[in-house]
Simulated assay, not measured.
Amino acid sequence: MHDEAFWQLLTTLVETSTINIDRPRGSAHPRYPDVIYPLDYGYLSGTISGDGDGIDAWLGSQSERRISAILITVDLTKRDSEIKFLIGCTTQEQQAILTFHNRWANQSAIMVERPADI
């Protein structure tokens, strides 16, 4: 029951927010030009994450804007931890995003997939 309520609240955040893509698929990170984004990346307008900005969101290729998973990240360089929404992502896209966040020694992420029955 608690799992269902958690995923429903996340869904409501997505449904009541605009997804702003500020780093399109294939674009380079503004400070690290060798870091290329595998999918569209941005944030949810009107939300606040732990860093004071909007909640980060990865946007996949599926037409349904359903949260497929969340990432929980830790970054020792920035000394922070964040949650990132994976929206409309296939299994392969989810894995690409997880790999993207785990490629540096000073940061790591784990993925929590949304249960299929919720």
Rank of each mutant, 00 (worst) to 15 (best):
R114P: 04
D51G: 08
P38A: 07
Y41L: 01
S63K: 15
G60T: 08
H101G: 10
S17D: 01
L59P: 00
E4M: 11
V14F: 03
W58K: 07
V112K: 01
E15W: 06
S63Y: 14
G88T: 03
T16I: 04
C89V: 12
V14S: 07
D34G: 04
I48H: 10
D3V: 05
Q8K: 11
L76V: 05
I110W: 05
I48N: 11
S81G: 15
D53K: 14
L39G: 05
W7R: 06
P24E: 09
Q94G: 14
S68V: 05
D53T: 10
L98G: 04
E4S: 13
T99M: 08
S81W: 13
R31P: 01
T90W: 14
R114Y: 07
L76S: 07
G60I: 03
M1E: 15
T11A: 07
T91K: 15
I97E: 14
A105K: 08
I83A: 09
G46Q: 12
Q8M: 14
R114F: 01
Y43D: 03
Y41V: 00
L44E: 00
L86E: 10
A116L: 14
I36D: 00
H101I: 00
N102K: 09
N102H: 02
A105P: 01
F85A: 05
S17Q: 02
G42C: 05
I48K: 14
T77C: 05
L98D: 10
V14I: 04
G26C: 03
H29R: 00
Y43K: 08
L71V: 01
A105Y: 07
N20I: 05
V112N: 00
Q8R: 15
P115M: 04
S61R: 09
S63N: 14
R66C: 00
R25M: 14
D51T: 11
Q62M: 13
G52C: 12
I97R: 04
E64V: 08
P33F: 00
T18G: 04
K78H: 09
Q94H: 12
D22A: 03
A96S: 13
R79L: 08
I55G: 02
H101K: 14
S61V: 09
D22R: 06
Q94N: 15
Y37Q: 05
Q94A: 12
Q107H: 12
R25A: 13
S17W: 09
S68L: 02
V74G: 03
S81M: 12
E64H: 05
I87L: 09
L76K: 08
P38N: 08
G26Q: 05
A69V: 04
I70L: 08
Y32V: 01
T11K: 09
A109M: 04
H29F: 03
S108H: 12
S61K: 12
D56Y: 13
A105S: 11
I83P: 00
D56F: 11
P38K: 05
R25I: 10
D22Q: 01
D117M: 02
G52W: 09
I70A: 03
L9P: 01
Y32P: 00
D34W: 13
K78P: 00
D53C: 10
I67M: 08
C89S: 11
N20Y: 01
V112P: 03
P33N: 09
D56Q: 11
G46H: 08
R114V: 06
V74K: 07
T12E: 06
